[in-house]
Design a protein around this nucleic acid. Sequence first.
RNA 1: GGAGAGGUGGGUGAGUGGCUGAAACCAACAGUUUGCUAAACUGUCGUAGGGGGUAACCCUUACCGGGGGUUCGAAUCCCCCCCUCUCCGCCA
Length: 424
Amino acid sequence: MLEVPYIRENKEKVLAGLAKRNKDFTAQIENIIRLDDERKLLTTAINSKEAELKQISKVIGELMKAGDKEGAELQKNGVTVMKTFVKDAQEKLAVVENDLQQLLYQIPNVPNNIVPQGKTADENVEVYRWGNTPELGAHKKPHWELIEEYDLIDFELGTKITGAGFPVYKGKGARLQRALINFFLDEATAAGYREFQPPHMVNEASGYGTGQLPDKEGQMYYVGVDDLYLIPTAEVPLTNLYRDVILKESDLPVKMTGYTPCFRREAGSWGAHVRGLNRLHQFDKVEIVQLAHPDQSYAILEHMVEHVKQLLQKLGLHFRIIRLCGGDMGFTSALTYDFEAWSGAQERWLEVSSTSNFETFQANRLKCRFKNADGKMQYVHTLNGSALALPRIVASLLENNQDEHGIRIPDALVPYTGFDRITR
RNA sequence: GGAGAGGUGGGUGAGUGGCUGAAACCAACAGUUUGCUAAACUGUCGUAGGGGGUAACCCUUACCGGGGGUUCGAAUCCCCCCCUCUCCGCCA
């Protein structure tokens, strides 16, 4: 959520930035400023009237103490009128504040200067590419065939016990999952991230904190009886660990990592390219999160990108990094890099990580601040990245490393799997 | 789920209708003293909103788990909810 004072002081800049999202926010921004003006006016009126009432109460208190009951009663004249005035003004203020809040919730984050102009994913900009397309020959198979051939994952069973999009990992398939999770967590902790095991369900306040709510409730599984949401990513519980927290400047940056399953309804997005592991309702992911000093957040974003880059290199996967254009970027993000691994048999790129700087957009909602050198409160910048999401990594590992005899496990992973090949 | 106790500032903890935004102590920060460390002393020590000032700052309102209510006036009384602790029940 953008801060109103920031909007007021940087109106043109905000509008110009938001224009990259291919929508004109002029009317909304003007409305926000108008409502804020109204808010200030009402507040001033209420404040002075309340000060008056408070003064009268004080006088009554003194008169009562002195035993002057009649004098006290006299003071009460006019109080009712004043109280009615205050009550009316407060009701108006509540409406104004609510309208303002609702409007603010609808304004996405302002894209950073280097975010490319563009409407769709086609206009994203590739900024880095590593490795080569694997030579697989004519016998290459997509991962859903390999999975069946080597009995690694069972989609039918998952459908039986739960539903489509909930796979059951079996034998070496299950072991590969565990290996990847441990590998990713070890790499993250070695890079200084503290490991957490957060809850897999969160309350409504947490949903608002990181920006899933309002608006995106359709994307989360909701447990109505207990009013809880299944997390769509570890970003939600991890970042919310610092909701309503005031940090010391010396605490920054806070580096967290955690493995969790992620639950996504993917309502409406079940089109093409969803076979096998390409899109699931439940998947595993290791996430890295940082709370950063605003002056350092973009340097830290680079570090995080570097970290993810190394993971993919250690796994030996052909991949590229793209900078998302304004039209493709998430609501809460100011700058996002997506990582795409090559899928050798599908012959297309699969998104395996999304690493973003949210600047103060989440921190404002979270009320996560630190005291700066001048003793002033300042919002932190929040950042996060997948490091990494498993299913598409598995898909691309299986496809890229296949030959007639089986599937080769990358060296970095062998200590974790305990085997270096998957065979029949 | 049932019964009881309780939720106050960074922490401990006082405070049952007005002089309490909140004692005291601890922690923290700044300074004085000191050969260093320590100790002692002095001072500062919440957040947010509104108004004023170039600014240091000043005035004002709100906030004592959350939300309502009673009252001229609520941390203090009443109602609802949430959470924590103890005992009981249930259970991995």
